[in-house]
């Protein structure tokens, strides 16, 4: 995880399942408690597998930051992962950008 201003960038591992979602959740909580985070950017460029655990985890982060007017972004989304994100309807609350730089510009 990296922090730029009030933006938290999370580099997601290859497989977002139950275990990886819990790991990200724990890391996020630690950062979130210590820093004044507003926006969260999930860098998905390395992701090869995702199930509903990933959807729940992303929605959970949105629920946290929306109270401070924050946004959630996903970047570098591979095609097969995009299909799952679309199917879940998550793009109603999460913004897709090509890369981290573009997401930071929209923050």
């Amino acid at each position: 995880m990296e922090i730029e201003d009030r933006n938290l960038i999370i580099h997601v591992g290859k497989e977002i399942d139950h275990m990886e979602a819990e790991r990200i959740r724990a890391d996020f909580e630690e950062c979130y408690m210590r820093r004044n985070i507003k926006n969260v950017i999930f860098d998905m460029s390395e992701v090869e597998f995702m199930d509903s655990s990933g959807i729940g985890m992303i929605i959970g982060k949105y629920m946290k930051v929306r109270y401070v007017g924050g946004k959630v972004f996903v970047t570098g989304v591979p095609d097969n992962i995009d299909r799952i994100l679309k199917m879940s309807g998550i793009y109603k609350i999460v913004t897709k950008r090509d890369n981290i730089f573009q997401a930071l510009r929209s923050c």
């Binding site: 979602a21 959740r25 509903s52 729940g56 929605i59 799952i84």
Partner: peptide, 14 residues
């Protein structure tokens, strides 16, 4: 409370 979203069966069926 466990950040579950209720999408599991939707994905299985899809």
């Amino acid at each position: 409370e466990l950040e579950r979203s209720g999408m599991g069966f939707v994905f299985m069926e899809a």
